[in-house]
Amino acid sequence: MNDKAQIHTLEGLFAATLMVLTVMLITRSSLIITPQSELSMDVQLKQTAEDALAILDMAPGTALQFNLTELVAGGNMTEATPQDNSLKPLDTEIDTQLNDIMYNVDLAYVENDTLTVKHAIIHGAPVENSVVATRPVTLYNSTVTQAGGAWNVSSNDVKVVEVRLIAWRV
């Protein structure tokens, strides 16, 4: 039996195992698989959601049929269910802006000095990486009457309503 014959093989094997283990350790560690591309997706999603609300708010009459204020003013103030949302025209307009993105819309406003939040459009349950874009609109008695909504705003008062757009990718 020649003992000498095994020594280089063993060392080679040892070095190989060491390298393979290191590579495995690196690939397995969660930090190296960064959420970077995911995060830039989040940036894109948030930007798109904010753009959509801003465009609806600023659009002149010839660009879109209704702007955000008119759409919100026309709400019938009922709590939405997944089957039936209370702001169908708003749903149509947001849908054309955000194709292949899922979203819910909530309305937040102050009533009797407390903040009330109502669901206006429900399309599903938001996932972990959802983003929220908000936009305030100001309603007056005249805007509500013109849009045929059910908001209770007296003729010498204003009502600030925050439109919250919760968006996520499936």
Binding site: K4, I7, H8, E11, F14, A16, L18, I26
Partner: peptide, 27 residues
């Protein structure tokens, strides 16, 4: 005793270690 005394092949294991450490550093 012959295996332990024979240190000829240690550089292979050593270079394996060096590469592993540099990989970790790069990571």
């Amino acid at each position: 005793a012959g295996i332990i005394d024979d240190t000829d092949g240690q550089w292979i294991a050593l270079s394996g270690l060096t590469i592993s450490i540099s990989l970790v550093l790069v990571a």
